[in-house]
């Protein structure tokens, strides 16, 4: 969880800074809505898919090609329970945490950008931000990010355990894990938009 969640905070915040600056021509409501409901979860999920998904796939792929997975099974460890479930649970729990930081920093960045570049006053920005805020905006984004974490971790585990022999096989599995993770994020984003909105 430390590696999957806490260590991923810097890159998530880095992306959030610039995603918050993107809608600089919009004001509070637009910044809040877009950051909390779409850009925060999706872009954070994309970033973490590259980082976490690749990490999981590379780790499990290496274990697979070095026969560590076989060794665990020899020791009567269920590879799904021992290798997959913890990672998926960890990602599911920590993605919303990272996304919450990303949302906060993204909204704050948009606020600062609007004030400095659009000559927008703080009351105006906050007025728009609060005016259209619904509590659903936050939990919608957090639920999405949790599903993204599960999907990214699951794709990383499956591609990693499916790695073929050699370093090239591990690299290919890693790439596939990232690609599948990003695709899963986009599909889930559309799914939650249909289900929850």
């Amino acid at each position: 969880m430390r590696r999957l969640g806490v260590d991923s905070v810097p890159i998530a915040l880095f992306i959030a800074v610039f995603t918050g600056a993107v809608p600089m021509y919009f004001v509070g409501a637009l910044v809040g809505k877009t950051i909390m409901m779409e850009l925060g979860p999706v872009l954070t999920g994309m970033a973490l898919a590259g980082r976490v998904g690749a990490s999981i796939a590379a780790e499990l792929g290496t274990m697979k090609v070095t026969e560590q997975v076989d060794a665990l099974e020899t020791l009567a460890y269920d590879r799904n329970s021992y290798l997959i479930v913890p990672r998926v649970l960890a990602a599911t729990l920590m993605f919303p945490v990272v996304t919450a930081f990303a949302m906060s920093v993204g909204v704050f960045s948009g606020w600062i950008t609007a004030i400095n570049l659009l000559d927008l006053s703080s009351p105006d920005f906050l007025k728009g931000l609060k005016l259209f805020y619904r509590f659903k905006d936050i939990w919608f984004g957090l639920i999405k990010s949790a599903s993204f974490g599960a999907a990214v971790a699951l794709m990383g585990c499956l591609r990693g355990l499916d790695a073929q022999a050699g370093a090239a096989g591990v690299g290919l599995s890693t790439t596939r894990a990232v690609v599948l993770g990003c695709e899963a994020i986009l599909v889930l984003d559309a799914f939650w938009a249909l289900v929850l909105l």
Binding site: M1, R2, G5, V6, V9, G32, L93, M94, P96, V97, V98, A100, F101, M103, S104, V107, L129, K130, Y133, F135, I138, L142
Partner: peptide, 23 residues
């Protein structure tokens, strides 16, 4: 400790932000 701190901080952000935004 790091995980707990991150989770608590995130919870505080979410709850505090929600209360603040919803006035």
């Amino acid at each position: 400790f790091a995980v707990g701190l991150a989770v608590l901080a995130a919870l505080a952000l979410v709850i505090g932000g929600a209360l603040w935004l919803s006035e």
